[in-house]
Design a protein around this nucleic acid. Structure first.
Length: 343
DNA sequence: GCAGAATAAGTCGGGTACAA
DNA sequence: TTGTACCCGACTTATTCTGC
């Protein structure tokens, strides 16, 4: 990770943000230019020439003292050549999102409200070029240069990460809460958010601050959203919608998952619980009585063997101990076991 | 490029048999 | 009664394929 040093006095926030934007717009690294080899056609049959692509400039939102930070992958080709955040006038915004967030306003008022609240940046500020399928996935150079500067200076109330590319910078350095894998799939991130039924947090670079963060899937296919994708958009709309009149104003229905009932209660869980109940240690006979009394488990004809086997698998005092298992129990005597971390 | 489906490989928990 | 070995099925994770 590149070293970034950026210190901002709170009362200089507006000035500092404008400095960052200026720095982005004046960037002369000319990334991805080798990708612009032939003209490209847009969805509406507009032909974009190589010269137009070459003349594009790094694209970043204007500063209006917004308090929400929205991060997506990269500018579209038309946004790039027009040097305008096209997203502000595409159908996803005007026909869907803005209508849900500002149901009582027309499109132009809704867009203006959105612009006043949301500061929009990309993982890459330049158009990354066209790949075999869609646009190429940008590298992390821009993100590494600017994300922390912007977050630390802006101190946003909420961060919205749209699509896999936007999450990559934060998962790469384990800064998205509850995500321990280095490159998780977007699907898994969305499912975890759905499972928790609440947003994530992104840690600041120095770990002293946390920013509430919602991850949403790319909006290209709203009709094919998974349940976790629908939840993500509900969470977003719920967070952005103003005031208390927010209920029942959007179409998605939130289905609450019964997390408790889906979590599995294993023999290990049961034995640990029972040993705690029995004062941190007990003889097998007493463990059996307590387990039977609780009636939480599946009692097969040989269930007592399962208890003994499970203790052995999780005790380095046993020959059955399996390397890599948690070492939860210690042997006091034959058929007499204690719980290691009992206090 | 992205997401979902299908498939393969690996891991874990549970059940049973049997020896000490 | 206790401890261990073996087997099986369920679940998780990784990889590949396919369609948009």
């Amino acid at each position: 990770m590149k070293d970034i040093t950026w210190h901002t006095e709170p009362n200089n926030k507006d000035e500092a943000m404008r400095e960052i934007i200026k720095e982005v717009r004046n960037c002369n690294l000319n990334c991805y230019r080798e990708e612009y080899k032939k003209p490209l056609k847009t969805l509406f049959n507009r032909i974009i020439s190589v010269e137009e692509l070459m003349n594009g400039r790094p694209l970043i939102d204007d500063w209006r003292s917004q308090d929400i930070l929205f991060i997506s992958q990269a500018p579209s080709k038309q946004a790039w050549v027009d040097n305008e955040l096209s997203s502000l006038d595409n159908s996803f915004f005007t026909d869907f999102l803005l209508k849900k967030i500002y149901p009582n306003n027309n499109s132009s008022v809704a867009i203006e409200k959105w612009k006043q609240n949301v500061f929009w940046i990309h993982t890459a500020n330049c158009y990354p070029g066209k790949g075999e399928g869609g646009d190429k996935v940008p590298n992390m150079d821009c993100a590494e240069m600017y994300f922390d500067k912007i977050i630390e200076t802006m101190n946003p109330k909420l961060i919205i990460l749209m699509g896999l590319s936007a999450t990559k910078f934060f998962t790469e350095y384990r800064r998205l809460s509850d995500i321990n894998k280095k490159s998780p799939r977007l699907k898994d991130i969305l499912y975890l958010q759905y499972d928790k039924q609440k947003p994530f947090f992104v840690d600041s670079k120095d770990g002293t601050n946390q920013y509430e963060t919602i991850v949403i899937p790319h909006a290209a296919n709203l009709t094919k959203l998974s349940e976790s994708g629908i939840f993500a958009y509900n969470l977003l709309i719920d967070s952005l919608i103003d005031g208390k009149a927010k209920k029942n104003e959007y179409e998605f229905t939130l289905k609450t998952k019964d997390i408790v009932s889906s979590s599995k209660h294993t023999w290990l869980d049961e034995i640990v619980y029972v040993l705690k109940e029995l004062g941190g240690h007990a003889k097998n006979k007493d463990i059996f009585i307590e387990v039977e009394k609780r009636g939480m488990m599946n009692f097969t004809p040989r269930w007592k063997n399962s208890v003994i086997k499970t203790i052995g698998l999780h005790s380095s005092d046993s020959k059955s101990y399996k390397e890599g298992n948690s070492d939860r129990f210690y042997k006091i005597d034959r058929g007499h076991w204690g719980l290691r971390d009992f206090k």
